[in-house]
Simulated assay, not measured.
Amino acid sequence: MSTQEGRVEREIEKDVDLCLKDGKLNVHSVGFSRHPLQDCKIPGHWPRKKRWNYWCIYDADFLVSLTVSNLDYAGVCFVYWLERSKDRFEEYTEIAPLGHGVHQGDRVEDPAGFKNSNMELIFQQEPGAEDWQLQGSVKKKGTVLVETDLKVINPDSSESLNVVVPWNTSEFQFTSKRIGLRAAGTIHCAAGSHTFDPETSVAVLDFGRGVWPYSSVWNWACGTMRKGKRSVSWNLGAGWTDGTPSTENGILIDGRLHKIFEDVVFDFDPTNFKRPWRIYTRESDTVDLTLNPEFERTAVSNLLLVSSSVHQMIGKFSGTIRIAGETIRVSGASGWAEDHKARW
């Protein structure tokens, strides 16, 4: 892992296009913003473009995730849920050749969706409304296996982490991590029905648009701790940002983003992902967290030229965050860390 000592990322404060008209990276988009200001229209680059809208909503008892993604040559859309107390888990994936049935926009606030005979996903903000609606259903031979009617409460009331990561002018990624949000609504599945309460639930959006190298490796960690009216959330990443002028590292305190410019180290055992993960800032004591995994989600696919291996460890964080002149003690905070290797 290369480090960028003294790295300072430019803060973007007005709307900007991710790309030039020829599909090359607009260098003026490189940096971070506190709100999603980036228009991610990407001309050309078929079949290298990657686009995804990943939502996850969880509380102490239950977790559900819904994703609409398009890899140019295939849409990959999936739904999974976890009954945390019983480690009961199910995941459903639909592959759409050439992305048929996938609908996504170029900005974070644009609706996204997918529909075929087995799965329907709709992510949208009703005109004039503050909240986001996340609706989904999974069927098999006409029988409904999963149904969600979820609402993310006014995500625009909070700042978020929005970053453009350039590998070069032909390969780049915009990521928007909207973390620590509140959610409401219900999921119906084989475990029964579960209703999320805005006071105790957490919603996370991972929005990505970019042109990726064929072989990619990344780590991602995300979590939230609430005590009384105080909310502290973190988004930390490594691997894919190494050697670039950007990181996806930030701490959100009561809706205010504190950007971390230095690299983060993910220390874990790749032979046993269930052992504790230590995640810490390389050059300072800003972040020193340990994730104790409770459940391992594994998603592995191998289609000769295209493959993916994900180990997402869902559990609880402990440790310290030192930011904005204070030391925050983290204990029993739910979230996850993952290791992902892809040839795509």
Rank of each mutant, 00 (worst) to 15 (best):
A112M: 04
G113T: 12
F114T: 11
K115V: 08
N116T: 07
N116E: 09
S117I: 11
M119S: 11
E120W: 07
E120S: 14
L121R: 06
L121M: 14
I122Y: 06
I122L: 09
I122D: 14
I122Q: 13
F123Q: 03
F123W: 05
Q125H: 11
E126K: 12
E126F: 02
P127T: 12
G128A: 09
A129V: 04
E130V: 11
E130M: 13
W132V: 03
Q133D: 13
L134Q: 00
L134C: 09
S137E: 15
V138I: 14
V138Q: 10
K140S: 14
K141P: 01
G142Y: 08
G142E: 08
G142M: 03
V144A: 08
V144H: 07
V144N: 10
E147G: 06
E147S: 15
E147H: 15
E147Q: 15
T148W: 12
T148C: 15
T148S: 14
L150W: 10
V152T: 01
V152N: 00
I153L: 14
I153V: 14
I153W: 01
N154M: 00
N154E: 14
N154D: 15
N154C: 12
D156K: 14
S157H: 10
S157W: 04
S160C: 15
S160P: 02
L161P: 06
N162R: 03
V163A: 05
V163L: 04
V163E: 09
V164D: 03
V164I: 12
V164T: 12
V164L: 07
V165P: 06
V165H: 10
P166S: 11
W167R: 01
W167M: 12
S170F: 10
S170T: 10
E171C: 08
E171Q: 15
Q173S: 15
Q173E: 09
F174T: 07
F174S: 10
T175R: 02
R178N: 10
G180I: 05
L181D: 00
L181C: 04
R182W: 02
A183Y: 01
A183I: 01
A183R: 03
A184K: 08
A184H: 02
T186W: 00
I187Q: 02
I187H: 08
H188N: 11
C189W: 14
C189G: 11
C189R: 10
A190V: 05
A190H: 15
A191Y: 11
G192P: 06
G192C: 02
S193H: 10
S193I: 03
T195F: 04
T195D: 05
D197Y: 00
V202F: 01
A203H: 01
L205W: 03
D206L: 09
F207A: 06
F207C: 04
G208I: 13
R209F: 09
R209P: 05
